[in-house]
Design a protein around this nucleic acid. Structure first.
Length: 272
DNA sequence: CCATGAACCTGGTCGC
DNA sequence: TGCGACCAGGTTCATG
């Protein structure tokens, strides 16, 4: 579930119930879920457990406390939501609030992690531009693409350049721009780079406004799901007809990821 | 610098 | 119905 729009949706959904509350208990159920701290560390390091703010940076959910922040990465199957009673089968961690509410981190594949940091520095060091921020201009995007020679899909998935894109939205953005995922980044004409820039922002904004894409029954809480699956044009559409070029959508492998393409996506590479 | 593959995990689906 | 193979919205690390 978790690319930028889905993480943003989780933040939007839980934020109000967290701000101004105190964390009275935080329990790891899966032993490895707390990456760089222990339950005891949390209680002793974090003096004031009042939550100041909840936001997103890259694909992390950032729960900001007075002198620390708790960063949560959902990885492939993580879900963060409130429960009234009982624990789901794959509960990985529990956060209890003084409001008597319980936030659950459910994670079937157990890849998700919690991190305790003083500030955002550690995350910022390894992560690039927020694609929807003002500082991410089309000129900067062009510079990123021209400064290396990499397959465009692999580059877009690289969080140290531009954050938030994952397998779904990369395929959707490239399709919308009619660029083949194996195009070499510095061989894509400037005009198309700008189209790709617009496509990425359009695709992400639309997905956020739809509360994210639900593929496998992802529920934020009480059955709420994202509606963006209806908006997908290429991802998961193998065998369907592309509604632009009218040919059959194929599935191939690019950067070791399942990748959906159609004929209208041109490959830009060094001439043979 | 860049690509590839494995590792971390569980569960669903597909083909025989 | 059963079983194995393969796949999954992410990231990191080792290797060539």
């Amino acid at each position: 579930m978790p690319e930028l729009p889905e993480v943003q949706t989780v933040v939007n959904f839980i934020k109000d119930k967290l701000i101004e509350k105190n964390i009275i208990k935080i329990v790891p159920i899966w032993p490895k879920v707390f990456d760089n701290f222990s339950e005891h560390d949390f209680y002793s390091k974090v003096k004031n457990t009042k939550i100041i703010d909840v936001k997103r940076r890259a694909k992390f959910i950032i729960i900001e406390l007075e002198n620390f922040l708790l960063a949560i990465h959902l990885r492939m199957t993580g879900k963060l939501y409130f429960v009234n009673k009982g624990l789901p089968k794959h509960t990985s961690a529990i956060i209890k609030l003084n409001s008597n509410k319980t936030l659950i981190f459910e994670d079937v594949r157990k890849f998700g992690r919690f991190y305790l940091y003083n500030n955002l520095e550690t995350i910022n060091k390894r992560h690039g531009y927020e694609p929807l921020s003002k500082s991410f201009t089309k000129e900067i995007f062009l510079e990123i693409l021209n400064s290396c020679k990499r397959g465009i899909k692999s580059l877009l998935l690289d969080q140290s350049k531009v954050v938030g894109l994952g397998n779904i939205y990369v395929d959707e953005s490239l399709w919308l721009s009619q660029i083949h995922p194996q195009s070499i980044s510095d061989k894509i004409p400037q005009k198309k780079v700008f189209i790709l820039y617009n496509s990425i922002r359009h695709v992400l904004r639309k997905a956020i406004s739809n509360n994210g894409t639900t593929i496998i029954n992802y529920t934020y809480t009480e059955g709420k799901t994202g509606n963006n699956a209806d908006e997908l044009n290429i991802y998961g559409k193998k065998g369907f007809t592309c509604n632009v070029c009218d040919t059959t959508i194929k599935k191939i492998k690019v950067s070791n990821r399942g990748t959906y393409i159609c004929k209208c996506q041109k490959i830009h590479s060094a001439k043979k």
